[in-house]
C-alpha cells in the first residue's frame, strides 16, 4: 500500500519537474512545479515527517509559489515564451537518465543499507520534537535565520520601491 502511494506521488513529482523545465510558458511551468511540490509534501508525510509536510504546503506551495505566480502575472512575463527555443526532449531525457543512473549507481555501490522500517520514537516528526530540538541544539541557527529573514524583508522593500 505504501509502495503504491510512493510510486504515484513520485511519478507526479517527476512529471511536474520535467514539465517545469520543458514547457516554454513560465506560468504553466509554475503550476507544474506547484503540483510537484504538493506531491513532494505527500512523500514527506509518508516519511512520518508531519511537521515538514505541513510546512511544505504552507510555505512552499502556499506562499513562495503564489509569490512567483503573482510576479509572473503582474509583469505579464508570458510573452517571453516565444523568444525561447523549445527544449529538445531527447536532450532532456538523455541528460536526466544519465545523471540519475550515475546517482543510483553510486548509491547501490554503498552496499546493503537495511530497510527503512526502522524503529522510530513516539513523537517522531511532531511539532514538539522539532521545537525542542530547535531551541536546544539549533538555537544559534534559529536566531541567525530570523536575522536573515529580517534582512530579506528590508532588502525586498528597498529594492522594489520606485523612489527611495
Amino acid at each position: 500500500m505504501e509502495a503504491i502511494i510512493f510510486y504515484i506521488l513520485a511519478a507526479v513529482a517527476v512529471v511536474g519537474a520535467l514539465l517545469l523545465v520543458s514547457l516554454r510558458n513560465p506560468l504553466s511551468g509554475a503550476f507544474a512545479l506547484v503540483s510537484a511540490l504538493v506531491s513532494l509534501a505527500g512523500i514527506f508525510a509518508l516519511l512520518n515527517a508531519e511537521f515538514v509536510f505541513i510546512l511544505q504546503v504552507l510555505v512552499y506551495a502556499g506562499a513562495i509559489m503564489v509569490l512567483i505566480i503573482f510576479t509572473i502575472m503582474l509583469l505579464n512575463l508570458n510573452k517571453e515564451e516565444l523568444r525561447e527555443a523549445p527544449v529538445s526532449p531527447i536532450r532532456l531525457v538523455v541528460t536526466i537518465g544519465l545523471c540519475a543512473a550515475c546517482a543510483f549507481g553510486v548509491m547501490k555501490a554503498f552496499g546493503n543499507i537495511p530497510y527503512l522500517q526502522g524503529e522510530i520514537a513516539e513523537g517522531f516528526g511532531s511539532i514538539e520534537s522539532v521545537g525542542a530540538l530547535m531551541l536546544s541544539d539549533f538555537l544559534y541557527p534559529f536566531e541567525v535565520i530570523s536575522l536573515v529573514l529580517l534582512v530579506a524583508v528590508v532588502g525586498v522593500v528597498l529594492l522594489a520601491k520606485k523612489a527611495i
Partner: peptide
C-alpha cells in the same frame, strides 16, 4: 528509493 527520487529531482 527516496534517495533516487531526490537525485532525479535535483538533476532536473
Amino acid at each position: 528509493h527516496y534517495l533516487a527520487l531526490s537525485a532525479i529531482l535535483f538533476f532536473i
